[in-house]
């Protein structure tokens, strides 16, 4: 006991009174403690992944929001160069906003698949809003409760999305046919559209559900079409529907305005 006490006193003197020994001790101690912390971090790191993932998703949503709004602003500015700056600024106002949500129920093996998220009308979610994952589009809001919402999955044979080959302006319709949850088809692509296998399919922006340019999938091959004027593309979907966990619901600030315009059109007809 006395030996331990004396050794401890000596070591304290040694490591506090000698700069060299102190630095060697600190370096070695750091090496030991850092390796221990490394092991412990390796174990406990997994416990926080959920919250870290949610945080990243939230931040990603903010950044994506910003990118889309900036794209929108650039688009507006390109068309508004002759306008005065006040007008341009007014039109630069943020158009899109995202609500981050977790998928609480999902199906992929039925002809009409839906999934449920933990955000509802209280969070500003409304039917008809687009839903995207970190990889691409996944569906459209169907019905909303106060705290949850049912989403029509992209894997639903009744749902059609307006898409285009990235870099072109020719629009086609994305539909899913039963079976493989990672394959969909783009129909009604005009014959003249140039594409290559591996090209990205993105949203067209012609509907007011999704902004333009959100990834949908990658062209795998062309398949025979019933109509000679159009062709059909087989597409590998960007989102993995089996592993859908966190999604973002897109709020378009112009949606009500655009909807009322459309209603006005239909009344006229």
């Amino acid at each position: 006991m006395l030996f331990i006490v004396l050794v401890l006193i000596s070591c304290t003197l040694l490591f506090t009174g000698n700069t060299y020994q102190e630095s060697v001790y600190l370096t070695s101690a750091n090496r030991v403690s850092s390796s221990i912390y490394g092991v412990s971090q390796g174990v406990t790191g997994y416990f926080n992944l959920r919250s870290i993932n949610e945080d990243l998703q939230r931040r990603n949503a903010l950044l994506e929001n910003e990118v889309l709004n900036l794209k929108n602003a650039i688009g507006n500015l390109n068309t508004l160069v002759p306008m005065d700056s006040a007008e341009a600024q007014r039109l630069q106002a943020h158009r899109y906003d995202f609500v981050s949500a977790s998928v609480i129920n999902n199906s992929v093996n039925r002809p009409r698949n839906y999934f449920t998220v933990n955000r509802g009308s209280d969070d500003g979610v409304r039917p008809g809003m687009g839903v995207v994952s970190q990889n691409g589009i996944v569906g459209i809001v169907n019905v909303t409760g106060r705290h949850t919402a049912r989403i029509i999955s992209l894997l639903n044979v009744t749902q059609i999305f307006s898409v285009k080959v990235k870099g072109t302006n020719s629009v086609g319709s994305l539909i899913w046919k039963e079976g493989n949850p990672s394959i969909a088809f783009v129909t009604e692509m005009p014959r003249h559209v140039k594409y290559h296998v591996g090209d990205t399919i993105v949203t067209s922006g012609y509907s007011n559900t999704f902004p333009e340019g959100i990834p949908v999938g990658i062209v795998m091959a062309q398949v025979r079409a019933s109509d000679d004027n159009f062709f059909t593309l087989k597409v590998k979907l960007a989102s993995d529907f089996n592993e859908l966990s966190t999604v973002r619901i897109i709020r378009d600030m112009y949606k009500s305005e655009l909807d009322s315009l459309n209603q006005f059109d239909s009344k006229e007809e």
């Binding site: 030996f3 004396l6 050794v7 000596s10 070591c11 003197l13 040694l14 009174g17 000698n18």
Partner: peptide, 28 residues
């Protein structure tokens, strides 16, 4: 013996400006 050794090492340390070196050595 341990205490005497520690103290003598400690004294040498004080004069040699090597705190702990001789105290620890003497104790062991």
């Amino acid at each position: 013996v341990m205490l005497a050794s520690f103290l003598s090492g400690f004294l040498v340390d004080i004069f040699s400006d090597t705190p702990g070196v001789n105290a620890l050595s003497c104790t062991i």
